[in-house]
Design a protein around this nucleic acid. Structure first.
Lengths: 229, 229
DNA sequence: AAATTTATATGACATTTGTCAGTTTTAGAA
DNA sequence: TTCTAAAACTGACAAATGTCATATAAATTT
């Protein structure tokens, strides 16, 4: 498998694209390619990271446990997303746990390489800033959604999000398959509520299911339900 | 009033502390001191900012309107907080509205000064990154709280937050006085629910009120209620 | 000071969502 | 393939929260 960062396509999606040729070479030499099986964790909440993970392939969920032990999935990370950046930069332990949703390949880039580049290449720092600024905006949007939309609306949005970002297979089912429990942990509800709403959407002809797979049948209808009509 | 950034104490709380003497001088020369009256807005959602605001005095709420026109207060900004940084850096319109909760004095620092310094001083960029990393972590915490705590718990936390960050007056009332509606818009609930919970807390001897002022009577009890006991 | 507006408060009720208990289905292991 | 554990599902009910209507209190204007 091609493992030179210089030739890696996922790079264009993240802040590494601000690196010079030489810097890229350094990253490439210091990085370690890892494979992570579905269900395995990349890092745990509260862990001290000595590097970041750049996702080449597969999808990871980034989640946080509440005081009562319930999981909340804050974000999904796929192709090109760099995980652990926040805690490496802030020099803090992670506040999120990363678990592979399907088989993954990731590149581990040591902390010192990141920090070095950050100190010497302002463009890279600014690029990282831009990404973080974007994430922050997204997070604010999620906060408002959580507080002002119903579970039904949030779940509907989750389906549209998955379709948009991961697409659907030949039979019209969402490519990225999540369990009902994971859906519940994304929108912040109980799995039973989640299941009930999926049933309701099926009855209304908005969705179809096959096992745990879910397909969007009537996207416009789903959209209308989300906006409240 | 002293208006040289070099001598401004709020600077130590924000990323400007990474600036060199010369850079500070430049900021100081390009900044404009403004006063904002209670209720006035510093900027609106969707506005293009050509600079950031550094809070010298007073408190501002940063809020977002939902599709249904309901306000959600995402953050309070006081002493030393720099507002508008995110959108200036990302070169996007603001996603939040800033309104003064009480009379404020703020320094407006033009965009080009910020961007210049960002491009030339990696320390400043890293300092900004650290702050944004912190905000991002906070935002994730809020998301999980919104999804997994009850309104009662979130409201309780809001009171503790206000006490910790803005203190209380001689009579034991919170220094920063918010309307019931604003409390509701912070925790993401209806003002009636908010009012009801305040009444309940009063009956239980956790809070006291005097007009719109609110005081914490039994902090330990309040804390217990939040953690679920 | 009176009038008017705005904020706070409370009751009654509807709706949403969570919890628990149990059944059925599915997917993976033996 | 059969067995078994986990996931998906459903019903019944309880709890939390939102909505609407209305009353009272506080703040502001006239």
């Amino acid at each position: 498998m091609e493992t030179r960062c210089e030739n890696c396509i996922v790079r264009q999606y993240n802040s590494l694209r601000a690196l010079s040729k030489d810097e890229l070479k350094e990253v490439s030499n210091s990085k370690i390619l890892k494979t992570v099986k579905k269900g395995e964790s990349l890092f745990e909440e509260g862990e001290k990271l000595d590097g970041v993970y750049c996702v080449r392939n597969g999808v990871s969920k980034l989640s946080k446990l509440s005081a009562t032990g319930k999981e909340h999935i804050v974000k999904l990370a796929s192709n090109g997303v760099i995980m652990g950046q926040r805690s490496v930069i802030a020099d803090e332990t992670t506040h999120l746990r990363a678990v592979a949703i399907n088989d993954m390949t990731v590149c581990f880039i040591p902390k010192h390489t990141i920090i070095n580049t950050l100190n010497t290449n302002p463009n890279f720092a600014i690029e990282v800033l831009r990404h973080m600024a974007h994430d922050l905006k997204e997070a604010d949007n999620v906060i408002v959604n959580m507080s002002q939309k119903t579970v039904k609306q949030r779940l509907g949005e989750a389906f549209l999000y998955l379709k948009k970002n991961y697409g659907e297979d030949n039979d019209g089912y969402l490519t990225l398959t999540l369990s009902r429990d994971e859906y519940a942990n994304i929108v912040g509800t109980a799995s039973e509520s989640c299941i009930r709403i999926i049933s309701e959407f099926k009855k209304k002809g908005l969705l179809k299911t096959s096992g745990k797979k879910i397909g969007i049948v009537n996207e416009k209808g789903l959209r209308n339900m989300i906006t409240g009509f």
